[in-house]
Nucleic acid binder design. Sequence first.
DNA 1: GACACTAGTTTCCTTAAAGAAACTACATGC
DNA 2: GCATGTAGTTTCTTTAAGGAAACTAGTGTC
Lengths: 121, 121
Amino acid sequence: MKKQAKLTNTEFCRNRIIAINDTMQVLSGKWKFHIIGTLLIGGKMRFMDLLREVEGIGSKMLSKELQDMEMNQLVTRTVLNTKPITVEYEITSYGRTLEPIIDEIAQWGAAYREALHKSDD
Amino acid sequence: MKKQAKLTNTEFCRNRIIAINDTMQVLSGKWKFHIIGTLLIGGKMRFMDLLREVEGIGSKMLSKELQDMEMNQLVTRTVLNTKPITVEYEITSYGRTLEPIIDEIAQWGAAYREALHKSDD
DNA sequence: GACACTAGTTTCCTTAAAGAAACTACATGC
DNA sequence: GCATGTAGTTTCTTTAAGGAAACTAGTGTC
């Protein structure tokens, strides 16, 4: 008889794994945290604003990531009747619920850097 | 004069972005959360135990991810003097500090799934 | 009429991540 | 001596992610 997994076979674990995967899929890629973070500070922002603020991103990536996030209801996209037309992106209240996660991640990262620094003896 | 980024140019923002990138690099890849989660429940675990518990992972990936995490001081690796030799992996106290992040992410994912479910009208 | 702005899309290319299967190497048990 | 268990490594292949540059298409400015 072969050995089998036991820990992971509990309902709790399976659901937890699925939940983590869900979140990480929504936040997948190199840029989502960065875009969300920028929108959290900047409020309503236009495409070109984001392109300038999110350092290093290209228009293709930005466009794709925003579409992704719009589908996941993290941001709204509003076309304004200006000339030339402008498009406003804004984080949704739902998207805002990501703030605690982002904060924790930022805090951990800062502490990590501190710890690395201290161990440089 | 071209328009320039302003929001992201603050010290605070730059550091925050760096901190987030640090964390995400430490947790990068498909498997780290899963492995850490398993070790958090399982305590000391051997290579083959992890291979069985972390559903779907192959030995190459597991080996690589564990090496990564050992370098980042999230887990310890102890070779036991048994025959055949066994190797014990355990999460460090430092690795344990990731627990709040993982919890938040899991909670958010669960809430997300709930929300999706409700909007299925 | 050339240039700059708006918001993207398209094409082409490179790199990184991941997986499957085979292989090393040693030990125990039947 | 053959299967099974330990802990990985190696090779080969596929897939996904990301980036640079050019392009569309319309408006306004000098």
